[in-house]
Design a protein around this nucleic acid. Sequence first.
RNA 1: GGGGGAGUACCCGAGUGGCCAAAGGGGGCAGACUGUAAAUCUGCUGGCGAUGCCUACGGAGGUUCGAAUCCUCCCUUCCCCA
Length: 407
Amino acid sequence: MRNFEEQLKMLVKSTEEILPLDEFKTKLKRAIDKNRSLVIKYGVDPTSPDLHIGHAVPLRKLRQFQDLGHKVILLIGDFTARVGDPSQKSATRPQLSEKEVALNAKTYTKQAFKILDEKSTIIDYNSRWFSKMNFEEVLELTANFTVARLLERDDFYKRYQKNIPIGLHEFLYPVMQGYDSVMLESDVELGGTDQKFNMLAGRNLQKIYGQEPQAVFTLPILEGIDGVQKMSKSLGNHISLTDEPKDMFGKTMSISDELMIKYFRLATVLPEEEIEAIEKGLRDKSLHPAEIKRRLAREIVSQYYDNKIAQAAEKEFDTVFKKKSLPSDLLEVKLATDLFTNGQIWIVRLIKHAGFAKTNGEAKRLVEQGGVRLNNKVIESADVDVTIDNGDILQVGKRRFAKFVCF
RNA sequence: GGGGGAGUACCCGAGUGGCCAAAGGGGGCAGACUGUAAAUCUGCUGGCGAUGCCUACGGAGGUUCGAAUCCUCCCUUCCCCA
C-alpha cells in the first residue's frame, strides 16, 4: 500500500469537492496506520441500462480506490430506483417494475466491470433492507428530516418555485440514499455533483445513528456531446461504453472545440501535465484543434477497445468524412421483389424501407433538401420511381448508408 | 372545505372567435462552407402517393356558419385562506 501523501494526491485529483477534506484526511491516515481499508460506497440507479463515458468518471475514481487497496461497494439502488431520483429532473420520473430493475442492474454491472476490478468489487442491493422495513421504522427514519431542510435542495426548490409537482415519495429519496450509508457504514461516498445533497443526507443520518459520518466526494459532471446538458441517454447526447468504435470516434469528433479539454480531463487517462500542454498549445495556436480532437477521439476509443481499433476507427472516419467515400461495413437492407411494381420502387418508399425516415413526409423532405443519393447521384425529386440492382447504395445525409440486397 | 391561477407540438413558450397545422427559442434533420459529425450561415421540422383530406392546443360535451380561443362538467396541478 502506498503512503498517505501519495494516496491523497491521487485521490484528490479531478474531484470537484471533498466534504470535509480534513475528515477525509484523518480517515485515510488512520486506515493506513492501522493497515485497514476504507469502505467506499457508490450508489447506482439501475434505471438506464446503458452506461456512457460520463458514468466512467466516478467509476474510474472507484478504480483508483480499489487499486490502492480500499473496499468498493457498488450499491445497486434496486429499491430506490422504483422511486426515481429527482436529481436534476424537472419532473417526476416513472417508476420501474421489479423485473426491469433486475435486468438493468445486470447490464449495468457488466459494463461497469470494463472499468472496475470485478474480483474486488462488492455488489449489494438496497432492497435488502428497504423491502423489510415496516411503516413504523419509516416514520422513525423520516422524523430525522424536516420539510424545510429537504426543500433547500436545489432541484426541489426550483420545482417548487416553478409550480411543478413534487411527489411525497420523491422527498424520501435523499432519506433513503442516506440510510444506505448507515447500513453500509461507509467511510466515503462518491457521486456526481448532482448527488451532493443526497450524500450529505448520509452524513446526517450516520451521525444520528452513532456512526462516524462518511466523507463525500463530488465528481464533475461531463456534458453531453451537445455541450449544453449533462450527458444522458435520454437526451441522446451520450457516448455509450458499448458504442461501436467508429461511432465513439465520430461522436467525439462532433463535440465543440471548447469542450475538448474537459473531455480530456474527464474522459481520458492522460496525465494532467500533458492536458495542460495541450491547453496551452490550443491557446497559442501551435496545435491544430482538428488534430487535437482526433487525438481525443483516439484516446477514448482505445480506452474501451484498444489502440489498433482506435486507429482503424480514425481511418474509417477519414474515409467517410474527408474523402467522402463509402464506409467499410455497410448496413445491408434486403429488398423483396414484392416491394417493386414493374421493377421499380418509389424513392420515398425506398428511404422508409431502409429505415432512414419514419414517414413519407420526412423522406420527401430529405430528398427535397438534396440529402439523398443513390449510387452517389443526388436524387432531384421525391416524385421518381427507381430501379434497384443488387449492391446499389443509398446514402442519406452525410453518414447514413445502405447497401441493397435483392431477392 | 372556500377562493384564485395554470395545462398549447419533442422541450420551453406566444396566441384569448375566422388571416392557426398554431409566433419565437431550444433540440433534431438537411444543405453550403471547412479543420471534424467544431464554429458560422441557409432551409426544413403533424400524417396521408396530397392544389385536397385527416389528426392536433388536458378530457368529454355544448354555443356558433366557424373554437386553441366562449359556455358546462370532469381530470391534473400550483397558490392563498381554513
